[in-house]
Design a protein around this nucleic acid. Structure first.
Lengths: 224, 224
DNA sequence: TACATTAATGACTTGTTAGTCATTAATGTG
DNA sequence: CACATTAATGACTAACAAGTCATTAATGTA
C-alpha cells in the first residue's frame, strides 16, 4: 500500500500491457545512460530517483543495479559516454588546425555550443556547478575527466595565440576564466528557469561575447 | 539507539553541560536565520537539515518550528532579513545620485560585491541558481523579491546612461545580462569549490570586467 | 520438449529528514 | 511562595529513496 509511484493501475494487474520481459544485455547500458542523462539534467543529480531512471529506460530498478554499481557510477557512465569523446575529438581537431588562432577559438566556442551547450549535455555542466559540493566523488571525477582536460585545451589555444603574436601577452589562467564565464552563464541561464532573464538568442549573445573577447585579446592594444 | 547525532554522550545524561533552557522569544528568530544562512550557503537548501540549523542556533528542532512554519518560510526570512534591506538602500542611493552613470554603475557593482558577493549572502545567489528548479516556491519568492527588483535597479542605471547620452543606445535587457553575468560567475566560482579554476583576486577580475563593460557601453563607438 | 543459464524483477531493508505534539520547565505576577 | 502562562523540548510519525536479494521467466541448446 506504499512504495508505489506508477501511473494509474491499482488492481487488475494482468490486463494492461503486461510487457513480457525482454532480455537485451547489450542495449541496456546505453538506454539507461540516455534515460539518466535526461532525468539528471531535468531534475538534478540528488533529486533524480533511480526508480524513475529505470522506468524511463523500460526496466526495473533491480536491472539498473545489474549494470551500474551506484548512482555515482551511473553518472560517470553518462559523462564518459556523452562528453569525453567530444573532448577527445576537439583535441584532435585542434592539433591539426592551420588557420588563425582567433578562428580556432571561434570554432571551439561555437562547436562547444552546438555539441554541448545547446544540447542536454549542457545541463550536465550546470548540474556539476550546482551539486558538486554535495557529491565529492562526482566532483572529483568530473574535475579530472572534463575540467582539467577542457582547460588544457583552451590553454593550448591561448598559448598558441600568444606564441604567434596574435594575442598580447596576458595571464593565461585568467584568460581561460574570461573565455569560460559567458559560456557557463549561458548554460546556467538555460537550465535555471528561475526566469532570471536572458530571453535573447544564445548565438547572438555568444557572438557578442566572442567579439568583445577578441578585441580584448588582439595585439597592438597597449597594456593598462 | 537511532535518531541520534549529538557529539558523544550516551549514558550519564546529567553531568555534562546541561544548559538550563533559556526563554528568549525576541532573540530566537534572528539567531535562527543567522544559523540558517550559514548552513544553507555551506550545504545548499535541500541538503541542510533543520535539526542542524536548530542546533547551530542553540535550540531544538521543535523551537525552530515555533518561529517558522516550514523550511521554505525559514529561507524567505533569511532573504527578507539579509538581502531585501540592501536592495532598498541601493534604490535610495541611486535615486539621489548626481555623478556620471559609469561612476554610478561602478559603485553599484563594487557595493554589491562588498555587501553581497563577498559575504555569505553571495552563497544565496548561488543557491538559487542551483536549486530553484527543485523548489518552485523558493524560486517564485526570490524572483519577485530580489531578481525583478535588482534588474529594475540596473535597468534604471542603463536607461539613465542612454538618456544622458553617456551610453550608446543598446538593447537594455541584454545589457543587464552582460553586466550581471560576470558577477554571477564570481559567486558561483566562490561557492562551487569544484576546483574549476579562478585563483585570481575577485576585485581584479571585477575591475577587468567593469572596464571591458564601460568600453563597450560608452558613446562614440560606431555600431557593428 | 526438457533443461541450464542468467537477465530481469520488485518487495524489502535501511537510513534519512520534514514536520508534529504531548510533555516539561522557565519566568513573571499576585 | 504558589501558580498560570507559554517557550522549549525531543521522541515520534510519515514519506521517501538508495541499494539488496530471493524469486521468476526468457532464451538457447541438447
Amino acid at each position: 500500500m506504499k512504495t508505489f509511484s506508477p501511473s494509474a493501475s491499482t488492481s487488475a494487474p494482468q490486463s494492461t500491457t503486461r510487457t513480457p520481459r525482454r532480455r537485451r544485455k547489450e542495449a541496456r547500458p546505453s538506454e539507461l545512460t540516455a534515460a539518466a542523462l535526461e532525468l539528471f539534467v531535468e531534475k538534478g543529480f540528488a533529486a533524480t530517483r533511480l526508480e524513475d531512471v529505470a522506468a524511463h529506460a523500460g526496466v526495473s530498478k533491480g536491472t539498473l543495479y545489474l549494470y551500474f554499481d551506484s548512482k555515482v557510477a551511473l553518472f560517470k557512465a553518462v559523462v564518459e559516454e556523452g562528453i569525453v569523446p567530444l573532448l577527445a575529438a576537439a583535441e584532435q581537431q585542434m592539433a591539426s588546425y592551420e588557420g588563425s588562432t582567433a578562428e580556432l577559438l571561434r570554432h571551439l566556442l561555437f562547436d562547444w555550443w552546438a555539441q554541448i551547450g545547446a544540447t542536454r549535455l549542457g545541463g550536465v555542466t550546470k548540474l556539476i556547478i550546482s551539486e558538486s559540493r554535495n557529491f565529492p566523488e562526482v566532483a572529483q571525477y568530473y574535475h579530472d575527466a572534463v575540467i582539467v582536460r577542457g582547460r588544457a585545451l583552451l590553454r593550448g589555444v591561448v598559448e598558441r595565440g600568444i606564441a604567434r603574436a596574435e594575442f598580447r601577452s596576458l595571464d593565461v589562467e585568467t584568460a581561460i576564466d574570461v573565455i569560460l564565464a559567458p559560456l557557463l552563464m549561458l548554460v546556467i541561464w538555460r537550465h535555471s528557469l528561475c526566469g532570471c532573464g536572458h530571453d535573447s538568442d544564445p548565438e547572438t549573445y555568444l557572438k557578442t561575447h566572442f567579439d568583445l573577447l577578441v578585441n580584448g585579446l588582439i595585439a597592438q592594444k597597449e597594456p593598462s
